[in-house]
């Protein structure tokens, strides 16, 4: 099973687990499995159409999936997937 690393701010939705083992042939399927298991994650990870939110970055190993095949990127048994929240803001 692939491993998804959960960032600190979302661990309240995964019973404080920082690593989740998940089945899924692609990033999209793995995320569907993840939010199926932990429903509270859905609104923070996916938009109304079920796509990964624009302010969530996903890495497969050290590579941004946007540089691969986005949410159709293939996931293997030993894949490590990192969820990275975009951190940005500013005064005005």
């Amino acid at each position: 099973m692939a491993t998804i690393l959960i960032p600190t701010p979302l661990r309240k939705f995964t019973e404080n687990n920082s690593k989740i083992n998940i089945e899924g042939a692609t990033i999209k399927i793995a995320f569907e499995s993840l939010v199926g298991q932990y429903e509270g994650l859905a609104k923070h990870l996916l938009d109304d159409k079920g796509n990964i939110r624009s302010f969530i970055r996903v890495y497969l190993g050290d590579e941004d999936i946007n540089a691969l095949n986005r949410d159709e990127t293939e996931v293997k048994e030993d894949s490590v997937i990192s969820i990275v929240p975009a951190i940005a803001g500013g005064a005005a």
């Binding site: 960032p7 701010p9 005064a91």
Partner: peptide, 10 residues
Amino acid sequence: HDLAKAMPFF
């Protein structure tokens, strides 16, 4: 702008 990308918990 701060709110737009704010995460829970932090």
